[in-house]
């Protein structure tokens, strides 16, 4: 084979690549709170066991989980303008990532909330806690702790999924990679480097989440 690899031209663009990493992290860090917020609200509503809202939330979860992210983002970005809702690429990207992540997070968080024993909640009432306090301290926090590993690997997956938003020209790492490719024609080298950066970011995030766990949930387990 007559091909000589040249990573030099790619590494020379490191400021742009680094900037791309920051953009990807920014996109993810905007989408994660949306994901978590929707999940907490929906799981709370599910606890009310009201028929129509349960049906709606479960429908949303099934619909999102069983269709590809690419189609979802095309639907939002190319589809919605035809009914008058025009979104910036980055806004559409954050929204799509947030909604997509929410569907998975609802399932995960629901499992954690379902595992909390009723006696614990009744104890809260017996102690005269406000329902909001019960939800926050007796239901939400232990549930989040129980599902923490699944939830955070979901967040890392969200960060990896954000690469797909380059297809609607959202500014993030893969998009930056495509720009560099367009100027250097070193497709393989560019995408190899970009993939390595994603690997580094997912490794970094998993370490960060481990630290957050130690800080937030350091108290001993009940079992």
């Amino acid at each position: 084979m007559g091909y000589t690899f040249d990573f030099g031209v790619v590494f020379a663009r490191w400021p742009e690549l680094l900037h791309g990493c920051l953009l990807t992290l920014q996109l993810s860090l905007l989408a994660i709170p949306i994901t978590l917020g929707i999940a907490i609200i929906c799981v709370f509503i599910l606890q009310l066991r009201e028929r129509i809202s349960t049906w709606l939330i479960e429908g949303f979860v099934e619909l999102v989980r069983n269709t590809p992210f690419l189609v979802q983002i095309f639907f939002l970005f190319f589809g919605l303008p035809s009914i008058g809702i025009r979104l910036e690429p980055n806004v559409a990207a954050v929204l799509a990532l947030g909604l997509n992540g929410a569907a998975y997070s609802i399932e995960i968080l629901r499992g954690g909330v379902d595992a909390i024993s009723r006696g614990q909640i009744e104890a809260g009432f017996a102690l005269g806690l406000h329902p909001a306090q019960i939800f926050r301290y007796i239901i939400l926090k232990p549930a989040l702790r129980a599902v923490y590993p699944a939830m955070t690997s979901q967040f890392i997956f969200l960060m990896l999924t954000s690469s797909i938003t380059s297809s609607i020209t959202a500014r993030e790492l893969t998009h930056v990679g495509a720009e560099i490719e367009g100027e250097t024609f070193r497709s393989f080298e560019v995408y190899f480097t970009v993939a390595a950066l994603y690997l580094a970011m997912s490794y970094g995030l998993s370490k960060l989440f481990a630290v957050i766990y130690r800080v937030s949930f350091a108290y001993p387990a009940a079992r």
Binding site: L160, S163, S166, T174, V194, A195, Y198, L199, S202
Partner: peptide, 8 residues
Amino acid sequence: RGTPLLLQ
């Protein structure tokens, strides 16, 4: 598992 399928 640590890189996006798109990049793969």
